[in-house]
């Protein structure tokens, strides 16, 4: 990594007689540079497993075959064009339902963070967390860059099967939504990514107190599968439950972006919805900082 030497030289230049305090700009560039390199190295590493990615993304879509058939039978059995929609709720036609279940997969591509919590818990358990204490590296920033590279590398490969499946299922969509909705959808996917990252990181940081968090993670993932709207649109649940689950942060991981794309979030409610997502990011950012601060105070740095 040739750039790292430039980082080192800027660090060692602190001792030189002609040293002048680095400007705020230079320091900012060095910090951005540092995290960019974390991103770049991880990207190169992850692209090594591109066939694995390809298979994973195909596997992710295969269960949709039975889902499409099941919802077909449900709509046929009900004899109705639309399901849901009770007490001012949002209704879904059969085509919208399948489009929703496809779009939820896209939301989850952004918000799921496989192995993040277990990785952080391992760093706490085996003591390798101390590298964040002795190196000029922030745990939250490092893992965020690591994850962004993971996501980018995954998407670079997964775009092929995703495009193929969406093309095959194009009849379930009413065409592209208006540009402002697409912009809101892209923003909501960005929120899903950051919120998914922060929620999973907070679960991982529980390891300061419990060491082994695999079981908690399993419970969290199982519940999240339902409350995030991965299984079915939250609007189909009874009004009280639907309202509650939509207000929780988990709905931003799957339901909200898909609902935005399908125009199920009214134009006047869209800014509020996005602001709520942002507010949840702030809440989890504070929680992560709090957990990290408190956790480091009781951290014993076991291991070599």
């Amino acid at each position: 990594m040739p750039r790292s030497s430039s980082l080192e030289s800027s660090a060692t230049s602190d001792c030189s007689p002609t040293w002048a305090a680095p400007s705020r700009w230079t320091r900012s560039v060095a910090i951005v540079n540092k995290y960019f390199w974390v991103f770049r190295v991880t990207l190169a590493e992850r692209l090594t497993y591109r066939v694995d990615f390809l298979l994973t993304s195909i596997f992710r879509f295969l269960p949709l075959v039975t889902t499409v058939l099941l919802w077909g039978a449900i709509y046929q059995g009900s004899g109705r064009q639309e399901l849901g929609g009770g007490s001012e709720g949002v209704a879904f036609t059969y085509r919208e339902m399948i489009a929703y279940l496809l779009l939820v997969q896209v939301s989850r591509t952004f918000s799921s963070m496989p192995n993040l919590a277990t990785g952080v818990a391992r760093e706490i358990r085996d003591g390798s967390l101390k590298r964040y204490l002795i190196q000029p590296l922030d745990l939250v920033g490092y893992h965020l860059m690591h994850r962004l590279a993971h996501k980018l590398s995954y998407m670079m490969v997964a775009v092929v099967p995703y495009a193929a499946i969406f093309w095959l299922c194009r009849d379930f969509f009413e065409g592209w939504p208006p540009p402002e909705v697409i912009v809101a959808w892209v923003v909501s996917l960005g929120l899903a990514l950051v919120l998914g990252y922060l929620i999973e990181l907070s679960v991982g940081l529980i390891a300061f107190w419990m060491l082994e968090i695999t079981s908690i993670l399993y419970i969290f993932m199982t519940i999240n599968f339902f409350v995030s709207g991965h299984m079915l649109p939250l609007d189909l649940l009874p009004a009280g439950w639907s309202g509650l689950l939509k207000a929780l942060p988990f709905s931003y991981l799957a339901y909200f972006p898909a609902a935005v794309f399908l125009g199920k979030v009214a134009a006047q409610e869209l800014p509020l919805g996005l602001a709520m997502g942002l507010a949840w990011i702030v809440v989890f950012w504070v929680l992560v900082r709090l957990l990290l601060g408190r956790g480091l105070r009781r951290y014993s740095a076991y291991g070599g």
């Binding site: 099941l70 039978a73 449900i74 059995g77 009900s78 189909l236």
Partner: peptide, 11 residues
């Protein structure tokens, strides 16, 4: 939730 919307699924 599904059977709140319909009486039959695939018969």
């Amino acid at each position: 939730t599904v059977f709140a919307q319909t009486d039959l699924v695939g018969g």
